[in-house]
Computed example of a mutant assay.
Amino acid sequence: MSQKGPGIDLDKSLGYLLKEASSALRTAMEAVLRPLGMTVTHYSCLELLAQRPGLSNSELARGAFVTRQSMNVLLQNLEREGYVTRPAQAPHGKALPARLTPRGRQSLEEATAAVRSVEVRMLGGMTEAEQADAFRALTSMVHSLRAGDAGA
């Protein structure tokens, strides 16, 4: 059903469709992560630390698209539960670089398999060429928007 009148036609808005796809992806990811005792933010934090050990709270917050305060609470919980470790004192400045523990790595392996299953389902109706085209198009959109932010 198409909305007519002032504004944009949501049925033809690429931005709205991207937001809808993002929401559907997050919902599907939350569903497969919940039985593992994780949220998407929890998973994102572990994944970022696996790829870039030693990130600070601020860097993790930016990478996971949450506030520094939210990330700080998550990191405290992950540290208490044995998924990450941070030094008692900052080696430089105020930042406490976080690293995955063996328990964090094991948990991440399980979560990665679950998240990968969601991505496979999401891309199931697309050929490899269509997937590559979608990847290029989305990458271009992100680049264009970020370039516009730099000039603002």
Rank of each mutant, 00 (worst) to 15 (best):
P102Y: 04
R136V: 12
T39S: 15
V120P: 04
K94V: 08
N57T: 08
R26Q: 14
T112D: 15
M71K: 02
Q131W: 02
G54F: 05
R26L: 10
V73N: 12
G148P: 00
L96T: 02
R34T: 14
Q3I: 00
E110W: 00
R80S: 06
H42M: 07
A150L: 11
S44M: 10
F135W: 05
L36D: 10
D9T: 04
Q51N: 11
L123S: 08
R34W: 07
S117E: 13
M29F: 00
A64D: 06
R105A: 11
E20N: 05
R99T: 13
N72M: 06
R80C: 01
P53C: 07
V40Q: 09
V40I: 05
D9A: 09
Y83T: 01
L18S: 10
S107Y: 00
P35T: 08
Q131C: 08
A150D: 08
C45V: 13
G5E: 09
D149Y: 02
L74E: 14
H42K: 07
G37R: 09
M29T: 03
K4E: 13
A21D: 15
A90Q: 06
K4N: 12
A132L: 14
R146I: 12
L138G: 10
S117L: 07
L100Y: 03
R99V: 09
E20M: 11
V32Q: 12
R62C: 01
L100G: 03
R121L: 12
E110H: 04
L25Y: 07
E130G: 07
A137S: 11
M122I: 03
V40A: 10
T85F: 09
E47S: 14
Q3S: 10
P35K: 06
G5H: 08
F65Q: 05
S56P: 03
G54V: 03
P87W: 04
V142M: 09
L108Y: 00
Q131D: 02
G63D: 07
G63Y: 01
N72P: 01
S70L: 01
V120W: 09
